[in-house]
Design a protein around this nucleic acid. Sequence first.
DNA 1: TCAAAAGTGTTCGCGCTACACCCATGA
DNA 2: TCATGGGTGTAGCGCGAACACTTTTGA
Lengths: 241, 241
Amino acid sequence: MQFLNGQDYIQQVSIDCVIFGYQKKQLKVLVPKLALKGDFSSLPGGFILQNESIDQAARRILQARTGLKDIYLEQFRVFGDLGRNNMPFFEQIVGLNQEQQGAESFNRKELEWITRRFISIGYYALVDIHQVVPQKSEIDQSIEWYTINELPSLIMDHNQIVANALQSLRLSLDQKLIGFTLLPEIFTMKDLQELYETIYDKPFARNNFQKKMLELDVLDRLEKKFTGAANKAPYLYRFRK
Amino acid sequence: MQFLNGQDYIQQVSIDCVIFGYQKKQLKVLVPKLALKGDFSSLPGGFILQNESIDQAARRILQARTGLKDIYLEQFRVFGDLGRNNMPFFEQIVGLNQEQQGAESFNRKELEWITRRFISIGYYALVDIHQVVPQKSEIDQSIEWYTINELPSLIMDHNQIVANALQSLRLSLDQKLIGFTLLPEIFTMKDLQELYETIYDKPFARNNFQKKMLELDVLDRLEKKFTGAANKAPYLYRFRK
DNA sequence: TCAAAAGTGTTCGCGCTACACCCATGA
DNA sequence: TCATGGGTGTAGCGCGAACACTTTTGA
């Protein structure tokens, strides 16, 4: 019935993942560039196999791009407007790729399948960026971390999806103690504060931030971290599971 | 390609609506009972036409059951577990309806269509219960308002969907000034307070509740309401749009 | 001894809660 | 004039923000 690459997927439904990472006071998103002429980038995505749940599908997609198995994952919204189809995108490609790349690499049936209208389930994931070795899929030319404020223009409504994901992340961050998943296992209070400041794009008072975090009672204080700098050495912390 | 009743729908995706109403200090949900032997109830739901957005589909489904066009509507979650299919349900029906009702009223193609695994997009709606004249669809035997604590057992995971909807409603109620949509246009402060107490299932202090609501600066105070009771007449209010 | 940055204790103001009081209404 | 329920003012309390002070570190 409905096949793409010989797999039996649910038709007209896709999953798009906003994979957040954090490095050097910047919130980043993992974005592959498609192996087609014309600079097309999109969110890492995929389809849902008949014999897997949507969460399993999202995990499979994430694992393929990040190599990580245990990832913090949250479904945040469905995008189902009319006009969410790859048609204009493929038309552009056909125009740009007259030889044999791109659209030609799809056979006729696959092209029909992929250019229909799609409903997309948005997931966001939080990862320790240092643990990720970004993996190209077979349709990618490259895959890279982009600072969220310097994202390239993405296909369809994918820029909008990122904006929505960030909004949802901000709402959940305080509630669910998920910020730690963006950091390495061991971190200083300053690291944590800078992460929060980056996500909310506003400063926090140092002492109050520390107090608030410690009162959550989820941090183990470890030994001090001697940096060689001429100041008091900060404690290291670890998130208690 | 994919047809049910001659319509071209997206396959394996459904919409389920939790329609909230409020009457006599009770939060209610509109639940149709299916025209099949064996007491099957489900959430009002439907499918997505190829040429409508998911929001439009939800509105169409809501209008069909409530008669109302302008309805407060919120998408709150996607349910996509494995095993979300109507197969066990239809097997039960076949067992119970040996004659010609129920499953037999579907032709073979429709049966195949409807018994596949489904991904369902959950919406909740808030309506003024007095404006609604519940409408049966052709597959319903009846349709009724049920107090949320006395819901019947619904098919598949629909009871779970209702629980999720209520949870989302509670989270949004304070943020988005949507409570008023459950009340008639004109109401007293006591009406509003009782609505909140019902939804959150806990009491609020009368004076503080009043202050909080008035400080939102979204209520127009109208004339007093003389009830004939031997006490001070309460003001009537209207939500300012 | 000093500057830099980390850790901690204290005060201030706001918003929510609780208590108190007054007012209108019909019997 | 009284009971009932509605409207409003004020005091207490807890949390987060702002401020202040101490401690540690290497130059």
